[in-house]
């Protein structure tokens, strides 16, 4: 009985943010001490679909950044992780990979912003992409270390002695073997970009308005209804993907 009620409490706590934000996103005014908003409207959501709205642009921008960061860091990470896995001083190389990964993104942004200013990439989408890549790429390198096991390396050699070229081996042996890991890494690096705020704000100079930047902006404007909608836009896509297949998302590092 105790276990049952605890489960119910836990489940409600987990669902609360989704429910709360959904209610707020269709709210119009919410005066104290009313628990629910006084008036409801679909205007916020309609704005999203009817084009040219800030939220719509933010959504598209976040998607472009997320996909770009995920594709680049997964591909580069996969290739380079092998080089690192085989390196003579593997652990020293890996220590380097942990650097940007453990550092607070905004502190990293402070220290590298001069470079982005000099190259004219500050305030540009490409600059933010590169900045987020600095966070996501080392993650991918660390992530793929477990893939290059003895067995996989031997399979690669076996393929070679059977006459396959490096490209053939990559396409027909290594990539199929790594498929599920590639998918997980793609999703997780996508999330690194999708969730990023500090570095995006600092290098994007607030001009590259992703969804997280918009949440913050709406909060500052005390526009909680739009902030709730933007929050939902961040949370729903990964939640739906999770529902489709949770294996793609989580794996201990």
């Amino acid at each position: 009985m105790l276990r049952k009620s605890l489960t119910v409490i836990l489940a409600s706590a987990i669902l609360l943010p989704f429910l709360f934000f959904t209610v707020l996103s269709v709210g119009q005014s919410w005066f104290y001490p009313s628990v629910l908003p006084q008036r409801f409207t679909l205007a916020n959501w309609q704005q999203l679909w009817s084009g040219q709205s800030e939220l719509q642009f933010g959504l598209v921008r976040s998607l472009i950044l997320g996909l770009g960061v995920a594709i680049l860091s997964t591909l580069l990470g996969f290739i380079i992780s092998k080089e690192i896995a085989l390196a003579k001083y593997k652990n020293r190389w890996l220590l380097l990979a942990y650097w940007p990964f453990v550092l607070s993104p905004v502190v990293l942004a402070i220290m590298v912003q001069r470079f982005f200013l000099l190259t004219g990439m500050s305030g540009e989408l490409i600059g933010v992409l590169l900045g987020q890549l600095i966070l996501a790429f080392p993650f991918a390198v660390i992530f793929f270390q477990s893939f290059w096991s003895r067995e996989v390396l031997q399979l690669e050699q076996q393929s070679q002695t059977l006459g396959a070229s490096a490209v053939y081996t990559l396409r027909h042996v290594l990539l199929p073997l790594a498929k599920s890991l590639l998918l997980i890494c793609f999703f997780q690096t996508f999330l690194i970009s999708w969730f990023e705020y500090g570095l995006t704000q600092f290098i994007g100079l607030g001009k590259v308005k992703t969804l997280t930047i918009l949440v913050f902006k709406y909060v500052n404007e005390a526009n909680i209804f739009h902030a709730a909608l933007a929050s939902l836009l961040i949370m729903l896509p990964p939640a739906l993907l999770l529902w489709a297949n949770k294996k793609f998302v989580f794996r201990g590092i």
Binding site: E151, L155, Q157, Q158, Q160, T161, L162, G163, L177
Partner: peptide
Amino acid sequence: VPPREREMVYLFQEPLLFPH
């Protein structure tokens, strides 16, 4: 001559089949 052009097949101790 690189391994893939040597036509000398090395058979590992454990039969390393492509699992997929």
